[in-house]
Amino acid sequence: MNQGDGKKSYAQNSSHQMAVMRKTLPIVKDIIKEMFINHLTLFEMLENFSIADLGCASGPNTLLFVSEVIDTVHKLSNQYNYKTREIMVFLNDLHKNDFNNLFNALPSFYDKLKEKHGYEFSQKCFISGVPSSFYERLLPSKSLHFVYSSYSLHWLSQVPRNLDNKGHIYVAKTCHSDVVDAYKNQFYKDFYSFLVHRSHEIIPKGRMVLTLIGRSIPDPSSNDCCCILELLAQSLLDLVSQGLIRKEDVDSFNMPVYHPYKDEVKTIIQKENSFDLEKFEIFECNWDPDDQDYGYTDKFDKKRSGRNVANCIRSITEPMMKIHFGELVLDNVFERYEKRVANHLENEKTKYINLTICLKKK
């Protein structure tokens, strides 16, 4: 498992992704505007403006984000009387991402650009795919002006090695401290590597906006990050007790994900030292994207919410679980998981903690 497979996860759930995009798009637009205003000479001389969406997945929200950024650049070019430059957009994810789905959507995307901004402008927008892990180099030196990544960087390049994490599939309240350290060290290594590679690819004063799932308190076993996966582990153990899967298979299955605390992220940024931290925002969203904070009124339907969350997590984990456990048991696993999530949400309305980080290349 590597960056991308699981990431399509939360990102492919359009409701979750739209909630995140509503929070981050104003930040993205403000940063691009600031780049135009404060670097007038630089931008007058530029022949193109290059953007990368790292961990883009293949859903409709990928091109929706691209459209919003292109609209912003077009508006600013007109507002400040800049000559409309060429816009380069690089869409990155792993090789197994469905780039064909994205490419098949491009003719319609360009047609909409022509309708909105005219034929001439549409011919200056170029979109391409870059299939590779973003924990490696992707593009030439100093070729990017703006980098965006949403709901990707909490996915690790691999499961930490030599984990002894019996009965769990991620960090949990009862797991050994060595497990916590292994996950933390793997995230440190991966995020540090991500920053190093981007530091070569982004021009001086170029920007990054990164959003990932984190946690609200230093304790890595807090409910706001580990509970949703611990409930899945318990659902797997339910099938062990019924003889449908082997306990050894559960003991050897771990998720390649880490939800960092804000101070952990800040420490890595400071130590890598290629970027200035301009902004760090934290916001929450419900496990169930269709639950609009009704609280515990009669409008809250625990069965519906349990089913919605189970479907979302299944879209994340199914490729990995199918390989490890086989396809036949998955329906049984997620039937139990749906009930466990529903009972949990009836008693405690747990939320995802989202970290949005704005960086400027030194």
Rank of each mutant, 00 (worst) to 15 (best):
S132I: 11
Y148M: 07
I127S: 06
F126S: 11
S141P: 02
F134G: 06
V159N: 07
S149W: 08
L144Y: 00
Y135H: 11
C125L: 01
H154D: 03
V147M: 13
V130Q: 03
H117Y: 05
Q158W: 02
F134S: 10
C125I: 15
L139F: 12
Y119E: 11
L156K: 14
P160C: 01
S143N: 11
Y151W: 05
S132R: 04
K142Q: 14
L156G: 12
W155E: 02
S150V: 13
F134H: 10
P140G: 08
L138P: 02
Y151S: 14
G129D: 13
S141Y: 00
P160M: 00
K142S: 10
K124I: 09
V147S: 12
L139A: 13
S133L: 02
Q123C: 14
L139V: 11
Q123N: 15
Q158A: 15
E136P: 00
H154T: 10
R137E: 13
L156W: 10
F134V: 01
H154L: 07
Y148G: 10
E120P: 01
S157L: 00
V130F: 11
K142A: 12
E115S: 06
S141G: 03
P160F: 02
V147E: 08
F121P: 06
P140M: 03
Q158I: 05
N162D: 13
L153M: 15
L138S: 12
K124L: 14
S157T: 14
Q123S: 09
S141Q: 02
Y119W: 05
F134T: 07
L156Y: 13
G118D: 07
S157F: 06
K124A: 08
R137W: 03
F134L: 14
S122V: 00
W155C: 13
E115T: 01
C125K: 00
V159S: 04
E136C: 14
K124N: 13
Y151D: 07
S128P: 06
L156A: 08
Y119H: 09
P131V: 06
S143V: 15
P140H: 08
L144F: 11
L156R: 10
S149M: 07
E136A: 15
K142M: 06
H154A: 05
H117K: 02
V147R: 12
L153K: 10
L156S: 05
F121E: 09
G129W: 05
S150E: 05
V147H: 02
Q158V: 09
K124V: 09
R161S: 15
R161M: 13
K116Q: 04
S143F: 15
S149L: 10
S157M: 04
S149F: 07
L144I: 12
F134W: 04
S122Q: 03
C125E: 01
S141I: 11
H117C: 05
S149H: 12
N162L: 06
P160R: 00
F126E: 08
K124E: 00
G129P: 04
E115V: 00
Y151G: 02
V130C: 14
K124M: 12
P140K: 14
E120D: 04
P140L: 09
H154V: 13
L153V: 11
S132T: 14
R161N: 13
F121D: 02
L144D: 04
F121L: 02
S141M: 02
S157Y: 10
S133I: 08
P131E: 09
R137F: 07
P131C: 12
L156D: 09
Y148K: 03
F121G: 03
Q158Y: 06
S133R: 04
N162W: 04
F134Y: 15
S152C: 15
L156C: 08
